[in-house]
């Protein structure tokens, strides 16, 4: 049986098909406006990569904020449990997972067996999430993937004081109008996110090994800022975006959670 996990977040959707203990196929698609369609697309893409037919795959666990829309899944499990499980599979010694997603950020304390023990999530608003970066990148006329590289060129510490995404956007526009360098502004934004997420890590209780997952983990600038904030190096899996789907597939395989 090929256990399958599907993670539908606010910006991207992922599917992972397991073959025993290893990943047979994985896919990433844009969520768009329809979670169910994104789930279908992610699954179809992973199936095409694996060479399997739909009838050949086994139990499916859906996770992510779009999980309730995935009616064809056998079970729905929260992304908290799935990220814990997925990350413990990749890095068995990890006890804390940070995930910065499109519309929420979370910090999860992981037990020895990959079970989520405790968690903290960002408050109601988009501060400290991928959306915060997306909105402010737009204000700077930059693509999301440009941010990490640009922030490395920063020469001075610019503070972004607003934690609200909307206010931070206007703050960025003001800084641009005042002639501030884009690199300094971007580095300031990364520090703002790192402060917010760092506070959640401290709330959960930091551990010596902290793993970073989610699309934002690919942003070197946020990684650096968070490492500075926490005073430790973060471990990042090769595919940080698929950790949730991997955890869901593992839970589907083990029938637990």
């Amino acid at each position: 049986m090929y256990a399958t996990g599907i993670d539908i977040g606010s910006t991207s959707g992922e599917a992972v098909i397991l073959n025993g203990n290893g990943i047979l196929a994985a896919s990433v698609v844009d969520t768009g406006y329809n979670s169910r369609r994104a789930a279908e697309a992610a699954l179809e893409k992973a199936l095409a990569d694996s060479g399997l037919k739909r009838e050949q795959i086994g139990p499916i666990v859906a996770t992510g904020y779009g999980r309730i829309a995935i009616e064809f899944a056998d079970r729905q499990v929260t992304e908290i449990s799935c990220y814990a499980k997925g990350m413990a599979h990749i890095f068995p010694d990890v006890r804390t997972v940070v995930d910065i997603g499109g519309q929420d950020s979370k910090v999860i304390a992981v037990g020895k067996n990959g079970k989520a023990m405790d968690f903290a999530m960002n408050d109601k608003c988009a501060a400290g999430t991928g959306r915060f970066l997306e909105v402010t990148a737009r204000a700077l006329q930059l693509g999301l993937s440009d941010l990490g590289g640009i922030s490395a060129q920063a020469t001075r510490d610019l503070a972004i004081s607003s934690i609200c995404t909307v206010f931070a956007e206007s703050e960025v526009i003001t800084l641009v109008a005042e002639g501030a360098e884009r690199a300094d502004i971007v580095a300031g934004l990364h520090r703002a996110i790192a402060k917010r997420v760092g506070a959640m890590v401290k709330r959960i209780g930091p551990n010596p090994i902290i793993a970073f997952a989610g699309g934002v983990a690919k942003n070197e600038g946020v990684k650096r800022a968070l490492e500075r904030e926490l005073g430790i190096s973060l471990v990042i899996p090769p595919e940080p975006q698929i950790v949730g789907a991997l955890g869901a597939a593992l839970i589907a395989r083990d029938g637990e959670g």
Partner: peptide
């Protein structure tokens, strides 16, 4: 273990069902 939920007893517009459901589900899972 303790879970903190932020919401509003009186104003439904200030109760975000999706995030609250995720938190309570995750808490039960833990």
């Amino acid at each position: 273990p303790m879970l903190e939920l932020d919401g509003d007893c009186i104003d439904p517009a200030n109760v975000q069902s999706g995030p609250l459901r995720t938190r309570i589900e995750a808490f039960v899972e833990t």
